[in-house]
Design a protein around this nucleic acid. Structure first.
Length: 832
RNA sequence: GCUGGUGUGGUGGAAUGGUAGACACGAAGGACUCAAAAUCCUUUGGAGGCAACUCCGUAACGGUUCAAGUCCGUUCACCAGCACCA
């Protein structure tokens, strides 16, 4: 009897004892495959069946490639910083470090029974100071390059989590983690200038092989649009209002301008008469949450009393302010063309503003002076040129993408390697420090005193998290690190950039008073570059050896969830491009191919959740049915990239399938391998199976791999089919059910592991048959199948087809009008 | 609203433009058993027929084609992402 428990335990032990190893050095081949799965966040909940789906799928690939002789890198690690651990730690009154260690230990224990061929010698952990030393190092390079800066802007604040969040982390006004309400507040934060890379992040998508839906989503998020930025002179003033438009062809249809209520020009241009109503409107807007502003159906706004002059025809245009214009896109002001823009039209109708049609149904300009009769495309070109000649406007590319809010007022993240010093001390900087400064000094004001951000010396990295008394966040402003006085207050060496606690005596006159930054980095920091560290996980001198990076990059296949497309995937592409610019990596993109996995839902098609009590514990499934059954089931359940509901019955079916394989091999063994290869179809079927599985694994079609293996078993498990074929079958099974395959391999008398045996190659000549079936289609309907020898002439085939009694019956007295023969497939007879 | 995607038996799903429903689950019947479980065998889209077989059938309607689940158009439904982005 097939006993999954004893077989799996036996092989887990033997593998651990060195029977097989999955390091990259198993082959002489220079060809490599770097297969990456998104590393898990080690939550207290333990492994989810969804984790297993993607790990097993890529494990299958890794195993096949290894057997095909590639050098395969298939690593795993822990994305362990972040809010959930911190919240868990606060609730249980333990340190996040201990909670993380516990959770990782649990995850590892669970992963160990699944037969995954990860190279554990490369395990990484983002919370390990040896790791985040390099996260800090990369950030320092960004600081020096001027990409890291501080800005006081409207940022998302989550009161429940007591921290700011990035745009990407707020969904429908709620935090991505936990679903807590968020509000917009003006706060000074560390930012990363990802918008400087917007163009490349968009354009270089052309060079990678991502699923179309992933590219589209990234493109939408980056939101590139080409248009014209132009100036409207304010009448009776020297000021100009700048607007951005993608429809410069509608310039003569502009009947008013709208400024966002936060626009800085607003107060300057508003006439005395309208001052009060504008101010009231601004106040009103401020008190509204973003959510309110979004949900409001009716457009509102007020007139400012001011007018602007339209650049080409001198027309006087009233200036309004309205909250449907957003301050943080474009210039915060728009030229309103009510005839050709739905929002402007709605506004114009409500406030009885003029509407001028300038584009005909046929996309030709009208009411546009010299430009009448031009197509919109021509008009865009000419108008852009004219405005540019008059110095009133120029072509401009605008992005929806915003800079990345990069600080959190929480404990469990990487500390910023930054010290704040006084203006006076800033002027004393010398040597290495000055070389590491950004082009523009970064300052903040504390109690009316200006402070300057200066970088910590690389020799001081990693800057480790201090012990604190409480991990509870403080509210707007300071994070928990601010309490660690001995850590925060330092002596800073103005010549080397090193810092020591002010508990110590001041080393010498070069050392000045400083305060460490007390915000921490968001959890996306460590995951932005982890694929580089796997390549050389223990290097202390550089983040990864240059030659090894050359060898392994780009990642050949990156598997992850759709929820990371506009967050992690975009961020890590940005970091990679930056590292390319400073010469650390030599590819412009980190990931050659990106695929997605589908979610596993609870029975009934709803999300699994603890509160609903509908979760499936994968480890319990392993105990009941075995890891191999679980693996096979998760691959068989449906197309890999689609969401699918769990069904334990299906798992039982897969377990039966493995049992039958086992029985089959045992029965063969009992016949002392006296096997005869006497089945004519066998060669064809075996080579067809090799081809099918090899290709399907490459194309993530794991479900049809399993059905092919089942079909083969159904056909041949009652026949004596020859040891060669059995061996091939076990090799093909090995990536899917590694424990069982290893056991069967041993039963067949093999002494070394099946997992490093040669993957079978299919022989095209075996896929050619001497006799082939032709389907006879009459007027498109399949009517008969005839079997003819493969080298028959067309006229032979035709003769035989017309000789079929079924064909004769249908044809009757009709003469075929035309006969088409598709080689080895169809004879198509057309009567009418 | 915009963008992308998906609609196939009782269920999960298969199908380079060429036998729709592979494979599996479930169900029904049978064998083994004192009985049950496990296992094995048979049937399983609908309608008609004793049968060979025939007709219908892939969300709806239309089109291209000798031939459409597959390609094109329109509509409907559902899923995902974005959402006053000028």
């Amino acid at each position: 009897m097939y006993n999954h428990r004893s077989i799996e335990q036996k092989w887990i032990q033997k593998w651990e004892d060195g029977f097989v190893s999955y390091g990259v050095g198993n082959t002489e081949s220079e060809q490599k495959k770097y297969i990456l799965v998104e590393f898990p966040f080690p939550s207290g909940a333990g492994l989810h069946v969804g984790h297993i789906r993607s790990y097993v799928a890529q494990d299958i690939k890794a195993r096949m490639y290894r057997m095909q002789g590639y050098q395969v890198l298939y690593p795993i690690g822990w994305d362990a910083f972040g809010l959930p651990t911190e919240n868990y730690a606060i609730q249980n009154n333990i340190s996040p470090a201990i909670a993380t260690a516990d959770n990782i230990a649990n995850f590892k224990k669970q992963l160990a029974v699944l037969g995954l061929s990860f190279d554990w010698s490369r395990e990484i952990n983002t919370t390990d100071p040896k790791y985040y030393k390099w996260t800090q190092w990369i950030w320092l390079q960004m600081f020096k390059a001027g990409l890291a800066y501080q800005d006081k802007t409207q940022v998302w604040w989550c009161e429940e989590l007591k921290t700011v969040l990035a745009n990407e982390e707020v969904i429908d006004g709620k935090s991505e983690r936990g679903g807590y309400p968020c509000t917009r507040v003006p706060l000074r934060q560390w930012m990363l200038a990802i918008t400087k890379y917007a163009d490349r992040l968009d354009r270089d998508l052309d060079t990678v092989d991502y699923l179309p839906v992933i590219k589209t989503q990234q493109r939408n998020w980056i939101g590139r649009s080409e248009g014209v930025q132009l100036k409207f002179k304010i009448t009776n003033s020297t000021e100009f209002v700048e607007v951005f438009t993608t429809r410069i062809d509608t310039l003569f249809g502009v009947t008013f301008l709208v400024l966002a209520p936060e626009h800085s020009l607003l107060n300057k241009i508003t006439t005395a008469e309208y001052q009060a109503q504008v101010q009231q409107y601004q106040e009103q807007t401020k008190s509204k949450s973003d959510l309110d502003r979004q949900q409001e159906k009716d457009k509102t706004g007020v007139f400012t009393g001011a007018y602007a002059t339209s650049p080409l025809n001198g027309k006087q245009i009233p200036i309004w302010t309205a909250d449907y214009v957003l301050m943080n896109y474009g210039t915060g002001a728009v030229m309103a063309v009510p005839a050709h823009d739905e929002r402007d039209r709605e506004f114009a109708k409500k406030y009885k503003l003029e509407i001028i049609n300038v584009i005909t149904e046929g996309n030709i300009l009208e009411n546009s002076d010299l430009y009448n009769g031009l197509s919109t495309t021509e008009a865009k070109l000419k108008l852009t040129k004219e405005l540019s000649n008059q110095n009133l406007g120029q072509q401009k590319v605008q992005y929806k993408l915003r800079d990345w809010v990069f600080s959190r007022q929480r404990y469990w993240g990487e500390p910023f390697p930054i010290v704040w010093i006084s203006e006076y001390n800033y002027r004393q900087l010398a040597g290495n420090v000055t070389e590491s400064l950004p082009p523009q000094a970064i300052t903040r004001e504390v109690d009316g005193v200006l402070q300057y951000a200066v970088p910590l010396s690389v020799t001081d990295l990693p800057l480790e998290l201090p012990e604190v008394e409480s991990y509870i966040p403080q509210g707007l402003g300071d994070g928990p690190l601010a309490q660690a006085k001995d850590w925060v207050e330092v002596w800073y060496d103005t010549t080397t950039g090193r810092a020591v606690s002010r508990k110590n005596p001041r080393p010498d006159n070069n050392w000045v008073e400083g305060m460490r930054e007390t915000d921490t980095m968001p959890n996306w920091a460590g995951s932005s570059w982890y694929y580089l560290r796997y390549i050389d996980p223990n290097n202390d001198a550089v983040l990864s050896d240059k030659n090894l990076l050359e060898k392994w990059l780009p990642v050949d296949l990156y598997n992850g969830g759709m929820e990371h497309v506009t967050v992690h995937l975009l961020y890590s592409r940005f970091w990679h491009k930056f590292l390319y610019d400073i010469g650390v990596v030599s590819t412009i993109e980190p990931y050659k191919t990106r695929i997605k996995h589908g979610m596993i839902l609870a029975e009934g098609g709803v999300k699994m959740s603890k509160s609903k009590g509908n979760t499936v514990d994968p480890i319990e499934m392993v105990e009941l049915f075995g890891a191999d059954s679980l693996r096979v089931y998760e691959m068989f359940m449906g197309p890999y990239d689609e969401a699918i509901a769990w069904d334990t019955k299906g798992l039982i079916g897969c377990s039966r399938f493995l049992k039958r394989i086992y029985q089959w091999i045992i029965s063969i063994k009992s016949k002392d391998l006296e096997l005869v290869d006497n089945i004519p179809k066998l060669d064809y079927d075996t080579h067809y199976l090799i081809k099918k599985i090899t290709q399907d694994i490459d194309n993530q079609k794991y479900n049809t791999c399993i059905s092919s293996l089942m079909e083969y078993l159904n056909l041949y498990n009652t026949k004596d089919i020859g040891i060669d074929n059995i061996q091939i079958y076990i090799k093909l099974l090995a990536p899917f059910a590694p424990h069982l395959a290893e056991e069967l391999w041993e039963i067949l008398g093999e002494i070394s592991t099946v997992h490093l045996s040669r993957w079978p190659k299919y022989d095209e000549s075996k896929l050619l048959q001497s006799q082939v079936d032709y389907q006879i289609h009459i007027n498109g309907k399949m009517r008969d199948i005839i079997n003819v020898s493969a080298n028959s002439s067309h006229s032979d085939i035709e003769f035989k087809a017309l000789d079929s009694s079924k064909v004769k019956n249908i044809l009757g007295d009709n003469k075929p009008k035309k006969i088409i023969i598709n080689k080895d497939k169809h004879i198509v007879i057309i009567i009418n």
